[in-house]
Design a protein around this nucleic acid. Sequence first.
DNA 1: CCTAACTCTGAAATCGATTTCAGAAATCGA
DNA 2: TCGATTTCTGAAATCGATTTCAGAGTTAGG
Lengths: 363, 363
Amino acid sequence: MDKKPVIAPKGRQQPRVKIEDVARKANVSPATVSRVLNHPDIVRPELRDRVMRHINDLAYTRDSAARALKSGRMRTVGVIVPTLALGIFAEGVEALQNRLSESGYTLFIANSQYDQRREFQELQSLIERGIDGIVLVGASHGRELRSLIEQAGVPVITTYVAKAGGGIPAIGIDNESATREMTEYLLRLGHVRFGAIANVVAASNDRSRARLEGIQRALSDAGLPLKPTQTVKADYSLAQGRSALRQLLTDHPDTTAVICTTDTLAIGAMAEARKMGLAVPATLSITGFDDVELAAQMDPPLTTVSVPAAEIGRGAADYLINAIAGSPVPRSVVLPYRLVMRSSSAPPRPNFRPARRGRSRDH
Amino acid sequence: MDKKPVIAPKGRQQPRVKIEDVARKANVSPATVSRVLNHPDIVRPELRDRVMRHINDLAYTRDSAARALKSGRMRTVGVIVPTLALGIFAEGVEALQNRLSESGYTLFIANSQYDQRREFQELQSLIERGIDGIVLVGASHGRELRSLIEQAGVPVITTYVAKAGGGIPAIGIDNESATREMTEYLLRLGHVRFGAIANVVAASNDRSRARLEGIQRALSDAGLPLKPTQTVKADYSLAQGRSALRQLLTDHPDTTAVICTTDTLAIGAMAEARKMGLAVPATLSITGFDDVELAAQMDPPLTTVSVPAAEIGRGAADYLINAIAGSPVPRSVVLPYRLVMRSSSAPPRPNFRPARRGRSRDH
DNA sequence: CCTAACTCTGAAATCGATTTCAGAAATCGA
DNA sequence: TCGATTTCTGAAATCGATTTCAGAGTTAGG
């Protein structure tokens, strides 16, 4: 007689209430229930309330699959980051998610481990899922990835960089310019013997590559081009920062300033410097990039570049929300970075000093 | 007259290739194409290859909405973490995502900012999305949240804790036992004047609360119960670790061991200790919890408890995949933590030393 | 009081893939 | 060679919500 199983064997206990159930209870058609939910203003208030009551009574929620199928919109956005282990990305993703959530979107997350092939696969999976928008990191993507995006016709934005090729809009900072400024600052302090530690091992890490280029350019412009051995490549671990510094100082013991493309590397370098008995900044100035929470708490506090990760995340969310809605969107957004001068950097020891306007500290 | 806009204003350019298109090209029925994709083994190899070729030619991908509608499975899992800013959660989420991805699942991510109301809202949104499984953090959840889960009939698992109430399975470590062991270790070293710094400000942070209880229990058992002023409550920031230590030492200048419920707090405490001119571990032993990457790189390296975050993430993924498939699943999984003794902890200065078997270091 | 102009609601088609059911083709044994 | 299995494929129903189209009901104007 009654069709409801007394107790479902294992799976869903209730067969899930559907729009038709609500319609029957409320003595209206499914169409009306749908209207109540989607266009409340075109339903007679009295009727609307009655239907609403039954919706609540039955705790009805519409099936998003059916909804998506009919409407063609999933109300879903995907993001692919290299890794979540880096606070800078975690922060951006968190901001992204928060903003999307406010607008009724949900965020799919995936990570590529700095591997372009994996990025492509994850993107494929996301597109199959019917996402309405996609957030990427950086400008270096395979061409097949770009064509996949284009073919799918999904709005996309790439983050943490100021511009990306292939007509993809970007939101982020000008990485090269940031390290260029940082390098110029160190030059002004009077440094002449530089070293760079860059996590450019991963092919897709164009942020660090741009940062390295910023360093190189500034130094070339100053007539102090970096020799290959003055640049140590690393991945993004703290331990690599340590070994990189060791190697750098082995090759160039007289280095007075080390510029790292990441705070993690810089913190590793500082740890190693301490272990080697080198005073920072008296003997060696060290700078980082990202301004992670720890940077300010180091001893000495780390000079670095602050990246507005949360703002990038929010901006990416806003961009996609607008793009999906068909609203006009900016081509690209360049956000300001901020050089944070702390005490891990100082003029070099008064030795040979071609400083233009460096003030000596411990004269 | 004609309803189709000549050129889509902005959105999808191609009408998206559907299964029927593939079927027509390949001269088979949609059913066969579907079978090729879902049960390749029941289709004649020759035919299967032919269909496959056309699938690739047309770059066909099935519409997940339609798929989900028909099958009732979204192949989607949701996770709600307090925050991604903590490496320990980011690591777990990353492992979770990787494992899910291997099995064709996609991960929805949301964060609660340690707010139970927000957690509930995010869960609601995820459930409306039709997720097949949900991952939570910790055991403290509102009862309405639990009933929502139950009513939705969605498999759930909670993480980073050894057990949770309300019949919810858990995968994680025994937090209380871990700090109890840590405290006992410090007792064995000969410490008698303890302090604790715990991030128990957020009501929902039962991990840190359990850790604090572990400390308290061990000390009570040793006849050295912690006074209220020997416990400083904090949130999860590094800066709070600093101020907490300062406050602790203001109230109890003779403290010789400080146990923190988080590495972040411990690192903050170490920074402050250094600033105050206190030698670690000679004057003050400090311990943390989580074993973040930085812990090992500190000076001195931090004694802490290693939490298998990646394993937790993977385990949660496996649990849900099985639960969704209807396979038998374990009730709960308790993973081993690992006490990592590094040099931030040592016997107290030879002062008054009731050590049972502490070896003196600098005799 | 009757028709015109609206407003509101319901029936039914639709989105795209999956799967049951049954029939066609192929394989096998006699 | 013929019928009995077995294997494989296709037609059609189905998942649940949305939305068009048209008709029912209501109000207003003449």
